[in-house]
Computed example of a mutant assay.
Amino acid sequence: MSYIGFIPARAGSERVKYKNTRPFAGYDGGLLELKLLQLSRVSRLSRIIVSSNDPAVLEYAATFSRERDHRVEPCERPNEYGTGATSMETFIKDYIAHLSKDGTMLWTHVTHPFVRADTYDRALDEYERARTTGCDSLVSVNRVQKFLWKDGRPFNYDNTLEKWPRSQDLEPLWDINHAIYIMPFDVMRTAGDRITPKSHFFEIGEDVAMDIDWEEQFLLVEEIARARIEQGRSLL
């Protein structure tokens, strides 16, 4: 089976300036370098597409391809698909789904620095098992078992039966964390989306799924990354 890695990294982040390539936890190429190193350890990927309208990202990806892993392919993204105003639906249907005629995409983001190669390998293994049961794709999720309320009443438990059940007894909900999507390109073209009713949920821990959306998160996650490195824990 042909798997193609996909990293979207558009220019002009408003909340975290230069988040893709600014130095991060000892990696001079930042989150982009770290993610490319992680994906380079996933042997089942035949290609690793880096889609961006940021010259710095494209230049770094090209250098990485020449010097470290020829599977990396910088792909210049048309500006109409590279602004904050671009809807995700349009980005998926009109751009991503057509990056390859054949094969299966493994879509990930640089802003999940703790998703390592072994997690991607486990996701691919689980996807291949799930396909035998009729699933057509895989989406990474976090389990949510918290006391959630909506419209003045509990949302995910019945407090007329027990006011405070044990949290582990709550029926789990699933938070799509955007760390990993695995889907054949033809399924994406048909669905017009990166999730379908037949998607398999792949649970990962919150310590793995940490995401960077804000400057404060960048600084906090960087400190956690440095601490893990000092403890001898690989980020790769």
Results as ranks from 00 to 15, higher is better:
residue 198 K to P: 09
residue 164 W to R: 10
residue 54 D to S: 08
residue 91 F to E: 15
residue 218 F to L: 14
residue 157 Y to H: 04
residue 125 D to G: 12
residue 140 S to N: 00
residue 139 V to T: 15
residue 235 L to C: 01
residue 96 I to A: 11
residue 154 P to Q: 04
residue 67 E to L: 07
residue 86 T to M: 11
residue 115 V to F: 11
residue 183 M to F: 00
residue 204 I to H: 06
residue 149 W to N: 03
residue 110 V to H: 15
residue 109 H to I: 03
residue 75 C to E: 11
residue 85 A to R: 09
residue 24 F to K: 09
residue 127 Y to A: 07
residue 74 P to K: 01
residue 92 I to D: 04
residue 104 T to L: 01
residue 236 L to F: 04
residue 104 T to R: 07
residue 28 D to T: 09
residue 118 D to A: 06
residue 106 L to C: 02
residue 80 E to Q: 13
residue 187 V to K: 14
residue 63 T to G: 14
residue 148 L to N: 00
residue 31 L to C: 12
residue 214 W to H: 11
residue 97 A to R: 08
residue 154 P to E: 06
residue 127 Y to G: 04
residue 76 E to S: 15
residue 23 P to M: 05
residue 120 Y to C: 11
residue 45 L to H: 02
residue 167 S to D: 04
residue 208 V to K: 05
residue 166 R to A: 13
residue 58 L to Y: 01
residue 213 D to G: 11
residue 84 G to F: 12
residue 135 C to L: 05
residue 148 L to Y: 00
residue 116 R to V: 15
residue 121 D to I: 12
residue 78 P to C: 05
residue 138 L to Y: 03
residue 56 A to H: 10
residue 123 A to W: 01
residue 106 L to G: 02
residue 112 H to V: 12
residue 148 L to H: 00
residue 91 F to M: 14
residue 223 E to Q: 15
residue 115 V to T: 14
residue 225 A to N: 09
residue 111 T to F: 10
